[in-house]
Nucleic acid binder design. Structure first.
Length: 703
DNA sequence: GGTATAACGATTTTT
DNA sequence: TCGTTATACC
């Protein structure tokens, strides 16, 4: 038996990896080899405990992380059979799979589809419009945002509309606060009720519903839950600081008598609390999971000590920490951290670009350099400066592959063919490309649907039937004609799914619905060539489908009766949840090869670069001016911490005295965090009487 | 029903 | 400044 998965681990890591079967909370500071520990622990479970892969459930924050984990486990566990029985995925993907398997018990149709947030908004608009709230378009849109966010947040707290009816005044206030005065509590509850009703009749679930529905499934059906308890002996959860209420509940539910959980996370890197993440789930874990043991990883393999000194000093100012970690570098002091003062944000951008250019000439590849900022809006001057100097760059955090309009539209056809009740999908594409079905005709369909309590698609069918009747022929003939093509098209797609491969079916959709022609024209108008345009993305989707189909054949997913679940269904589920290929904000499919990285701090989480520029280290930027409470302030501190700890060799921090953006011109200045850190560092410098050039932090001004 | 222009609002974002 | 969406007009 090989134990190579243990070599090279430090003491703390070894302790975590080789711990007996018990609940474990691993606090893994930035760059301390967290993924390594998870992979090694899985290898240890398989080799030492001799438990089969199917007894392991590994939960990650993103699909990308799940994929990476699976690959690394495969490498570390050569010779172990049935590795594909190991479950690794996000909470959402895992729940979707449970719901597919137990759809009947979960009270969902076998063909249930998953709505993305834009579908949800479109439906909420339908629900809210008849209320005649007298809102301007933009205001209505903002309200739609708040309402959908609120519904998601409530579901993730486990609250359905029905339960809100008996909620306390405090809860009611918490909810209505989000809508200013545009919506009363009762109005909101009515909307929420109607929305749930819509989802129910249509057989569609939103992202939050996946989690809530699965929780309810297990609570209502202990026999199904005990099946899981019999299966899962080891649950590993990565990024535990980013779990929310319902995800924590799910872990509790899934953890049976003979199961232990390894929760891995870093409370210092919790930067998503505004989305419902609760880092206090980490201390709660110690309280709620029997005999849970705590292990902290502090040996850092990523950054030099000079970088870590800043990070440590920044976090020492934070009160609410699970453990007062002090990160120790395994790489030595390293290069000086440079703090740079700039007159304004345009100069700052110029300074970044020219410094990068110098570093590149000195041999640092562009892809090893990153500029991190608090707001997307800060990227603009940087992009200009980069273009002027001819520095190639990629912007992260732009539109993702499966969020793209053309992909969503293509998938909507597929969704409708799979589940004709999916009204959200129907409304999305009934007039894309244009086939002369405007608002008035859609209203007609909606009226028929309401009247007959049926789906929109059925309503079209009814309309076409009625139009055949000579008595109505005149009245309906003109209107019916425009629906006929659409109706036949969807039926044909349905038929194709029975006989053709998924790839072929998608190809048919792209050709026959006119999507390809529509986007070919659009690509041309926008001056896109055949490689970077929307048509190319549709092609990519077809190829994606082919790959997916292959995978399904190798590793089929079964329902509770042991039957294989239909591939188109799985594809829809998968693509709704998987963010796809890397796309930069310019919509280019393939990112540039040796290109510098521009990113918000949030989307840089988990990444690392040789050289990092953190720009806009200013009050009202970092920390953001939006935060008022102490909690919000401390989250900004953690954000700064995440930014700093992305750097492997060289870190630059910059701030401006004056900043011009759409709001106008503001006089800014160094961030409180910066003054805090520098005070600390300077103290050390003085104490050790270091000459200026040996100091760990240098300070300069750029004009 | 489709296209040009005005008006508005703008933390952070994964699933 | 930029992107989205409502409206006015053909």
């Amino acid at each position: 038996m090989s134990t190579s998965y243990l070599t090279g681990l430090n003491n703390a890591q070894l302790k975590a990896v080789t711990a007996p079967e018990q609940n474990l909370l691993v606090i893994a500071g930035a760059g301390t080899g967290k993924t390594r520990v998870i992979v090694s622990r899985i290898a240890y479970i398989l080799n030492e405990f001799q438990d089969p892969p199917r007894s392991i459930l590994a939960v990650t924050f993103t699909n990308k992380a799940a994929l990476e984990l699976k690959e690394r486990v495969q490498k570390a566990c050569v010779g172990i059979n049935d590795l594909n029985m190991l479950w690794a995925g996000t909470f959402h993907a895992i729940c979707a799979r449970f719901l597919r398997s137990y759809c009947f018990a979960a009270n969902l149709p076998a063909s249930f589809t998953i709505m993305d947030p834009s579908d949800v908004k479109r439906e909420l608009k339908h629900i809210i419009e008849p209320l005649n709230l007298n809102l301007k378009g933009a205001e209505l849109n903002k309200l739609l945002g708040s309402v959908s966010e609120t519904i998601f947040a409530l579901k993730e707290k486990g609250l359905r509309a029905q339960q809100l009816l008996s909620s306390t005044r405090d809860t009611q206030y918490e909810i209505t606060r989000r809508f200013r005065s545009e919506l009363t509590f009762d109005e909101f509850v009515q909307i929420y009720l109607k929305y749930e009703e819509f989802c129910e009749t249509v057989g569609a679930v939103d992202f939050s519903e996946l989690l809530l529905r699965t929780c309810e499934l297990f609570n209502k059906h202990p026999e199904i839950l005990s099946l899981q308890h019999r299966r899962f002996k080891h649950i590993l959860v990565d990024e535990f600081q980013d779990t929310n209420h319902i995800q924590y509940k799910l872990v509790q539910l899934l953890c049976g008598e003979n199961c232990t959980v390894m929760a891995v996370g870093d409370d210092d890197q919790s930067i998503y609390s505004w989305r419902g993440a609760n880092y206090r789930n980490m201390p709660n874990f110690l309280r709620d999971f029997k005999d849970a043991k705590l292990i902290a990883l502090e040996e850092n393999y990523r950054s030099s000590q000079n970088v870590l000194d800043l990070a440590n000093s920044l976090m020492s100012g934070c009160e609410d920490r699970l453990s007062q970690k002090v990160l120790q570098s395994q790489k030595g002091a390293g290069q000086v951290v440079e703090v740079v003062e700039c007159p304004n944000n345009y100069q700052e951008a110029q300074w970044v670009a020219s410094t990068m250019s110098l570093l590149h000439n000195a041999g640092v590849p562009y892809q090893e350099m990153a500029v991190l900022y608090r707001f997307n809006s800060q990227s603009n001057p940087l992009e200009n400066a980069f273009s002027t100097l001819g520095i190639p760059y990629n912007i992260w955090g732009g539109l993702r592959f499966f969020d793209r309009e053309e992909i969503q539209n293509s998938l909507a056809y597929l969704r409708l063919a799979v589940n004709e009740n999916d009204n959200a999908a129907l409304l999305r594409i009934i007039n894309v490309p244009k086939r002369a079905i405007g608002p008035s005709k859609i209203e007609l369909i909606e009226n028929i649907a309401t009247e007959h309590h049926c789906s929109h698609f059925k309503a079209i069918e009814l309309l076409l039937e009625t139009a055949k009747d000579p008595a109505f022929k005149k009245a309906y003939a003109a209107k019916a004609k425009s629906f006929k093509d659409f109706y036949d098209l969807v039926l044909k797609i349905k038929e194709n799914l029975e006989t053709q491969s998924l790839q072929e079916a998608l190809h048919f959709i792209h050709e026959q619905t006119g999507l390809n022609d529509f986007y070919t024209k659009k690509d041309k108008d926008e001056g896109k060539n055949s490689l970077e345009g929307r048509v190319a993305n549709l092609k990519e989707l077809e190829e994606n489908a082919a790959r997916f189909e292959e995978e399904c054949k190798v590793n089929p997913i079964l329902d509770s009766d042991g039957n294989q679940i239909a591939i188109p269904l799985l594809f829809i589920t998968n693509t709704s949840l998987v963010s796809g290929g890397e796309i930069n904000s310019k919509g280019e499919k393939d990112s540039l090869q040796d290109a510098a990285n521009l990113s918000t701090i949030h989307s840089a989480k988990g990444l690392e670069y040789q050289v990092v520029f953190v720009v806009g280290f200013e009050d009202s930027i970092l920390p953001s001016a939006k935060g008022n409470t102490l909690d919000e302030f401390e989250e900004e501190r953690r954000l700064a911490y995440v930014a700093i700890t992305r750097a492997k060799e060289k870190l630059f921090l910059s701030y401006c005295n004056m900043r011009t953006n759409y709001q106008g011109t503001n006089y800014t200045g160094p961030s409180v965090f910066l003054t805090e850190i520098l005070k600390d560092v300077n103290k050390t410098h003085q104490k050790e009487q270091l000459p200026y050039k040996e100091r760990s932090v240098s300070y300069s001004r750029y004009d």
